[in-house]
Design a protein around this nucleic acid. Structure first.
Lengths: 143, 143
DNA sequence: ACACTAGATGAAAATGATTGTCAAGACCGA
DNA sequence: TCGGTCTTGACAATCATTTTCATCTAGTGT
């Protein structure tokens, strides 16, 4: 018992996810798999991603709609990313200060088993088009 | 044009929300309103909460399922909360260090219009008591 | 090789929060 | 009072994610 089987589906999921250089949703991954010839059921994709998450092999973020996005984790440690709201490009950030701060929180608050999620977003430099023609149109109209 | 009307429904939402000492979901708030005699449509509750969010009058967090939870903001500045996964109790934390860190991030990464959300959770001290003779009379088990 | 079984698959249906629709109603200035 | 704009709310639609459940399979023990 206690076995985690190696199956073609899981192999395909992990492999395809490994080829993605940016965060992808389960739905996108499912479409990618279907397009790539190796059709894997949507349910299986979800299950595989959940397993990978539990195993600590992927980083997970939630976009503004709450949808989960996955990226195969390059290193074996917990990371945070700054993601562009326009193009979706992600960039890992050095969050050691925050990690230390969060850890200290346990001592000062009396809370145990602390967990934290940190979502960072912005607009990356390339996406910040000059918009010279529009006077004040560039002001933050959104959200 | 451009007017935000004062209506009984919005008053009821804001008032009921103000009476909640912990984060509540839109659905819970809707039920509370119904139970309290002032029935407000679920759609209206959602719209009111979104408006309050935009106006900066409430703090919003997302629980592990992605559901949005609201709490009327006591002060007028952006806050972060540490929330107990067992009883739902919330406790504001001093996150000025993180705020400063996040602000600095804009300079070092070249990203603009930075936004961040930070979800902190743990198990509060009262909840850590190993199932004694049910000492949690006050601690609402709900959510 | 063979049988066996805990694990794994996936199509379809269920879940559940949130949003869109749109006709009917309410607020408020003129 | 009048009228147009804002608001409301029942209902349907959306959509990611989970459940269900019948069927299949990887991998161990024999």
């Amino acid at each position: 018992m206690g076995g985690v089987r190696r199956t073609p589906q899981r192999t395909a999921v992990l492999e395809t996810l490994g080829r993605c250089r940016e965060f992808v949703s389960a739905q996108e991954l499912h479409a990618l798999l279907a397009g790539g010839g190796s059709a894997v059921g949507l349910t299986t994709v979800y299950r595989a991603l959940r397993a990978l998450d539990r195993a600590g092999l992927v980083d997970v973020v939630r976009d503004e709609t709450g949808e989960r996005l996955y990226l195969r984790r390059p290193t074996d440690e917990h990371r945070h990313y700054l993601i562009c709201r326009r193009c979706g490009r992600s960039q890992p950030v050095d969050a050691r200060d925050v990690e230390a701060w969060a850890e200290r929180l346990g001592e000062t608050t009396g809370f145990a088993e602390l967990e934290h999620t940190l979502e960072l977003s912005g607009v990356c430099r390339p996406c910040r088009r000059p918009t010279a023609a529009t006077p004040n149109g560039a002001a933050d109209a959104g959200r």
